[in-house]
């Protein structure tokens, strides 16, 4: 297969080594090959979104990258002492477990003042004394986000964080993620099966279906034949929210199609190359771009 790739380091020209670098990842779980030949690299501060259909291995890839699952093949190198703030797809708090939001946040660390600050920052100030299991879906995701932020992460990993939220709630959550990202300056690695939520500011989109079908800027990926093969013509949505955010049109989410032709280019300028291999020399540790 052909691979569209954009070198991340040319997009973010900083002479630092990647936070996570993986090569040739493969994983088979109970007879099913979930991932194969996945190469991955994430630079500090970079925002990467992984898209793919259900069952394409997105969550598994995240789990492998954060160290929750060991791959059968391939290598992963994480920056020493890498601090990851993780927001899982689903966290079912058993009703048998009594735990307040504040106690949950304390597991991430931080002073009581820092915890109160994190709650305020994520828009759920004053809920510290509430039972975790009693929160609404949106409040819960924000509590998870507060937990992640308290770890002072270098990398924020979000696995479909807006699942189960209505569309305004989803848009607000992604808006919040973007704000937090801007404040902390951390890298963001996010998963979505929903094309409409490809993050406005994504530096790079990885289209996954067991392997990396294509990757690049949102515009490049949405034009790639591999992506179209997976998602049909549903490219409007991805671009719609992508552009919407430039217009600050959060509230409406995606009313795709209409403004399809009015698209303007992304604010960043990414050099991209078409070809099979990513230039290794540029992704080596400490190599100035």
């Amino acid at each position: 297969m052909s691979q569209l790739s954009v070198d991340p380091l040319s997009a973010t020209p900083s002479p630092v080594s990647p936070l996570i670098e993986a090569e040739g990842l493969g994983l088979t779980l109970s007879g099913h090959q979930i991932l194969h030949d996945v190469d991955f690299s994430l630079a500090p501060g970079e925002i990467v979104t992984v898209v793919g259909p259900n069952g394409s291995g997105k969550t598994t890839l995240l789990r492998v990258l954060i160290g929750a699952e060991r791959p059968d093949t391939g290598r992963i190198t994480r920056a020493p002492g890498l601090r990851i703030g993780y927001v899982p797809q689903r966290l079912a708090v058993d009703r048998t477990m009594p735990i307040t939001v504040d106690r949950f946040l304390a597991l991430a660390g931080g002073t009581p003042a820092a915890r109160a600050g994190a709650l305020e920052r994520t828009g759920i100030a004053g809920l510290g004394g509430r039972q975790l299991a009693a929160l609404s879906g949106g409040q819960f995701q924000r509590a998870l986000l507060a937990h992640a932020v308290l770890r002072e992460p270098q990398l924020l990993v979000l696995d479909e964080p807006a699942q189960g939220l209505d569309q305004p709630g989803e848009a607000r959550l992604y808006g919040l993620v973007a704000e937090l990202r801007a404040e902390i300056g951390c890298a963001v690695l996010m998963v979505s099966h929903d094309l409409h939520v490809v993050m406005a500011a994504s530096d790079r989109v990885i289209c996954l279906n067991g392997h990396v079908c294509c990757e690049g800027t949102p515009l490049v990926v949405s034009a790639a034949p591999e992506y179209r093969a997976l998602f049909g013509h549903g490219t409007h949505g991805a671009l719609a929210l992508y552009r919407h955010d430039h217009d600050h049109g959060h509230e409406h989410g995606h009313e795709d199609g209409h403004d399809h032709d009015h698209g303007h280019g992304h604010g960043h300028h990414h050099g991209h190359s078409h070809g099979h291999e990513r230039p290794e020399s540029n992704s080596g540790p400490g190599t100035p771009a």
Partner: peptide, 9 residues
């Protein structure tokens, strides 16, 4: 609470 959350921590 969550094994993945633990692993990430």
């Amino acid at each position: 609470l969550n094994e993945d959350l633990a692993a990430a921590s």
